[in-house]
């Protein structure tokens, strides 16, 4: 259909006022809130870090120095890499990957139970108890984890009382608290896509497979999981992206010696006072996570459209 005709029909269907509102709202959302800030970030990342007076002056030229810095650091000789930043970057992606897998393993049974097994009141109670903790602010939740995992926290107290430990375990320096906090932070974004996908599976298919002698493992492997694949991809994508980009949990729960890549970005923007470099790092994180997600989707043969379902 040609665009002007489509536009005409759109206004005919929605009326002038609603039509204009819809177009303006979508345009505002797309351009002002998403595309424009990202373009600014790209622009920033390709500029030199100059004092305000020199911006727009002769020294303000296009540069890849911030991207190069991420790779090589300030060293001049070839073959020496910026091992600190690259190391943190790789560790962040790897940790985000494992947090995603952990969340998937944890949430699949819960989602399956809610979608196919639980009835009425009990199921609603479970959903409520999953949602209510997220009414608490993210930062407060992270602090709650810090208190729980502290050396005098509930968990250590319990383990010592139960006789499993004789002295408190250092959960925070060993990053246990960090991974637990990150794992919990985006759990709902894993459960709900899974729940939606599994819930639409016809119970009779599960029963049919069972009737033909299939074990529970095979029923999940051959019937439920293939059916829930779009939900699994959608949940994993969100958890991976958000975990890799999380800031509050690493700031509050991270051990003193461990950095999350977002903390480095934060430092460049904040204490480092180098916005262009922060922007470059942020773009690197964004592009890498998108590429990883696309790659994984390719491997598991999931189409982008299926995720949006």
């Amino acid at each position: 259909m040609n665009p002007s005709l489509a536009l005409q029909r759109f206004f005919l269907k929605n009326g002038m006022a609603l039509g204009i509102f819809l177009l303006v709202a979508v345009a505002f959302w797309m351009f002002i809130l998403i595309i424009l800030p990202q373009l600014f970030m790209v622009d920033f990342s390709l500029s030199k870090n100059l004092p305000p007076a020199e911006i727009g002056g002769p020294k303000d030229v296009l540069t890849f120095e911030h991207y190069k810095f991420m790779l090589y650091g300030s060293a001049k000789e070839a073959g020496s890499f910026n091992t600190v930043d690259l190391g943190v970057f790789m560790r962040t992606l790897l940790a985000a990957f494992f947090v995603t897998i952990f969340d998937l393993v944890l949430c699949y049974p819960i989602a399956y139970y809610l979608a196919q097994v639980a009835h009425g009141g009990w199921g609603r109670l479970m959903v409520l108890s999953l949602i209510v903790p997220f009414w608490v602010n993210e930062i407060l939740r992270a602090f709650a984890f810090r208190i729980m995992f502290g050396s005098a926290g509930v968990i250590n107290t319990f383990l010592i009382w139960a006789g499993i430990l004789d002295q408190p375990y250092d959960f925070i320096p060993n990053n246990v608290a960090l991974y637990a906090g990150l794992g919990y932070a985006f759990i709902l974004l894993m459960i709900f896509p899974l729940y939606n996908a599994i819930e639409s599976l016809d119970k009779n298919q599960i029963e049919a497979a069972r009737d033909m002698g299939a074990s529970w493992l095979r029923i999940h492997w051959r019937v439920v999981i293939p059916f829930a694949k779009p939900g699994i991809s959608s949940g994993c994508t969100m958890v991976f992206m958000l975990t890799a980009g999380a800031l509050a949990a690493p700031q509050i729960l991270g051990g003193p010696s461990s950095l999350w890549f977002t903390q480095i970005i934060y430092q460049w923007f904040n204490t480092g006072g180098n916005w262009p470099r922060g922007s470059a790092y942020a773009i690197i994180l964004l592009v890498s996570t998108i590429l990883i997600v696309l790659l994984v989707m390719k491997i598991f043969k999931v189409k982008l459209g299926e995720i949006a379902k």
Partner: peptide, 15 residues
Amino acid sequence: NKRPTALIFQNLALF
């Protein structure tokens, strides 16, 4: 899964 029966469902429940 252990009975010598096979059930055909009303909606067939093909995979």
